[in-house]
C-alpha cells in the first residue's frame, strides 16, 4: 500500500501509515488524550484539525515566496490562528454541542505541533497541490489515529458506542457492547469506567504505541534473519 507507485499517491498515503503524525511522530498528543472519550468527539476533532491543516498548508504554500525567512514562524502562527478562529466560530454557530465538548481544545489547534510542523517542513518548500495532498494525508491519518483511541476507550469505558449526542443532525442511537440498557433498566454492565477518565487515555495510548513498536520490532527481526540467511547462502555458494 505504501510502496512508491506514484509520487502523488505516495505523498498522500505517507501521512496515513508510514509517517502517521500521532503514532509514528508522536505529535499532537494533547487533543489525542483529551478529546477521545467518545468516537463522535474524536471525529469532530479530527475534522476540525484537518480543515485547519489543509487551509493553512494551502495558504502557506501560496505565500511561500512572499514570506521572508526571518519571520517564518510568527507568520505561520498568524495564518494558523486565523483559520482556527474561523473554524471555532463556524463550529460555535453550526454545531454548538461539538463546540461545548471540545471546549478550549479547538483554540489549542493553534499550538498543535503537527500544523506548524507541516507548514515549516512541507508547505514552505512545495507547491500547492503537493501541500494539499500532504495535508489531506496527515489529516486523515490523525483522524484515524484519534478514532482508534476513542474506539477502544468508548467500548471499554462507556460499554456502548452512542451516536447523535454531538452530531445532532443524525438520529440518536446506541450500539450496546459491554453494557445493555433497555427502557432505562440496566440488563448487564461490564464496562470499566476508568477508561473514559484520564487514566484510560494514557493506558490506551501507551498500549497502542507498544503494539506498534512490537510490530516494527518483529519486522526488523524478520528482515535481519532474511539478511543473515542471504549472507549464509552467499558463503555457501562461494
Amino acid at each position: 500500500m505504501t510502496r512508491k507507485k506514484d509520487g502523488k499517491l505516495a505523498n498522500f498515503l505517507k501521512g496515513i501509515v508510514v509517517e502517521n503524525p500521532l503514532f509514528v511522530s508522536v505529535l499532537g498528543t494533547c487533543p489525542a488524550l483529551a478529546t477521545t472519550t467518545s468516537i463522535e468527539g474524536a471525529i469532530g476533532m479530527g475534522i476540525l484539525f484537518s480543515i485547519v491543516l489543509i487551509c493553512s498548508n494551502i495558504l502557506i504554500s501560496l505565500l511561500r515566496k512572499l514570506i521572508s525567512e526571518e519571520i517564518t514562524t510568527p507568520a505561520y502562527i498568524v495564518v494558523i490562528a486565523t483559520f482556527v478562529t474561523i473554524v471555532k466560530m463556524m463550529t460555535n454557530a453550526f454545531l454548538p454541542e461539538l463546540y461545548n465538548t471540545l471546549g478550549v481544545f479547538i483554540s489549542l489547534i493553534v499550538v498543535n505541533c503537527i500544523v506548524l510542523g507541516r507548514a515549516e517542513a512541507y508547505a514552505s518548500k512545495h507547491g500547492v497541490l503537493d501541500s494539499l495532498l500532504d495535508a489531506c494525508g496527515m489529516g486523515i491519518g490523525y483522524t484515524l489515529a484519534l478514532l482508534s483511541i476513542a474506539f477502544v476507550r468508548e467500548i471499554l469505558g462507556a460499554g456502548m458506542i452512542s451516536f447523535g449526542n454531538i452530531f445532532t443532525f443524525i438520529p440518536r442511537f446506541d450500539i450496546p457492547i459491554l453494557k445493555y440498557v433497555e427502557n432505562d433498566v440496566v440488563i448487564y454492565d461490564y464496562s470499566i469506567n476508568m477508561f473514559i477518565q484520564p487514566t484510560g487515555a494514557f493506558i490506551v495510548f501507551g498500549t497502542i504505541l507498544a503494539i506498534i513498536a512490537a510490530i516494527s520490532n518483529y519486522k526488523n527481526n524478520k528482515a535481519k534473519v532474511k539478511e543473515k540467511l542471504a549472507k549464509a547462502k552467499l558463503k555457501e555458494a562461494q
Partner: peptide, 23 residues
C-alpha cells in the same frame, strides 16, 4: 521493561498510574 514497551509506552503507563494517584 519488555522490548516493545521501552521508551514512550512505559512512560505513558507511568503517567496513567500517576493519574490514578491524583484522582
Amino acid at each position: 521493561s519488555p522490548k516493545a514497551f521501552k521508551g514512550l509506552p512505559v512512560a505513558l503507563m507511568t503517567a496513567a498510574l500517576m493519574a490514578i494517584a491524583f484522582m
